[in-house]
């Protein structure tokens, strides 16, 4: 899937070391990765291998200690100031004092959208994540899955070209997860957004991605990059096909190699 299209994220030789009280933690080392426009890239790897950290570096929430990174040809900071991406956190992080509609309006207010435009976008995005009718509810009146959907609607509301998602469906049950995966895929196919997606689930990664990046820990680095040759238009049935299983198998091999149970 690489080739002619413009690259959105370029990472070269990137490393990040946290200075903690009991010595340095090498969270990322020697990361080389280039993500093209319209790609759907999944990051997968054992817990603590640096997936979240990599995503935070792209979002300028963390500064790398070595190497270079560019987002849309700019530094991550410039990209953030240009509001180039939407970020979905591991937890929903909705504000308990705002209704669902007001939560989705939050980035729109900050970015100075007019009132009419705001209402239109709230309506559209709540529909997109199947939450119509819950506008006036507060977050704590919703289930965990609904909250996470609201946070996705919030990230989509200002229509960024780049979506950074950190285990957005991690806390949901299998059925809801399948459903949201399908919806996300549809949305991606329709809008041609670029997505960087962190997950722990092999089927989810294979089902969604055009490319799967397997990370391994201590220090966090890229173990394998798997291009998917599955068609862009997919349904859940594809998970039974041999092609799907072949890719899933390769991802599993990579994960297993990354895990070291010797220590």
């Amino acid at each position: 899937m690489t080739g002619p299209e413009r690259s959105v994220i370029d990472i070269e030789n990137l490393s990040l070391t946290f200075e903690t009280n009991d010595g340095p933690v090498h969270a990322l080392s020697d990361i080389d990765l280039s993500i093209g426009e319209g790609d759907f890239v999944s990051l997968i790897g054992p817990s603590g291998c640096g997936k979240t950290t990599l995503l935070r570096v792209i979002a300028d929430l963390e500064a790398p200690t070595g190497g270079t990174i560019s987002v849309n040809g700019m530094s991550p900071e410039e990209a953030r100031l240009k509001r180039a991406y939407g970020y979905v956190f591991q937890a929903a992080a909705l504000y308990p004092w705002r209704t669902i509609a007001d939560n989705i309006a939050l980035p729109l207010e900050i970015m100075g959208f007019a009132k009419g435009e705001r209402e239109e976008r709230i309506r559209r995005n709540m529909e997109l994540v199947n939450l119509s009718g819950f506008e006036r509810k507060y977050p704590w009146q919703l289930s965990g899955g609904m909250q996470q959907r609201a946070s996705i609607a919030r990230a989509l509301s200002f229509d960024p070209d780049l979506l950074l998602m950190d285990e957005p469906f991690g806390a949901l049950d299998e059925i809801v997860r399948d459903h949201l995966n399908e919806q996300l895929l549809k949305l991606w196919a329709k809008t041609r957004k670029t997505v960087v997606f962190v997950t722990h689930s092999i089927p989810e990664a294979v089902f969604l991605s055009t490319r799967i990046v397997v990370l391994c820990p201590r220090p966090g680095r890229i173990y394998d990059v798997i291009e998917s040759d599955l068609p862009r238009e997919r349904t859940l049935d594809i998970r039974e096909t041999p092609e799907f299983l072949k890719i899933a198998h390769r991802v599993r091999e990579g994960l297993r190699a990354g895990h070291s149970y010797d220590d």
């Binding site: 200075e19 200690t65 270079t68």
Partner: peptide
């Protein structure tokens, strides 16, 4: 506060 915990920039 979000900035304080992080390490300095690369170059």
């Amino acid at each position: 506060s979000a900035r304080e915990g992080t390490t300095p920039a690369p170059a």
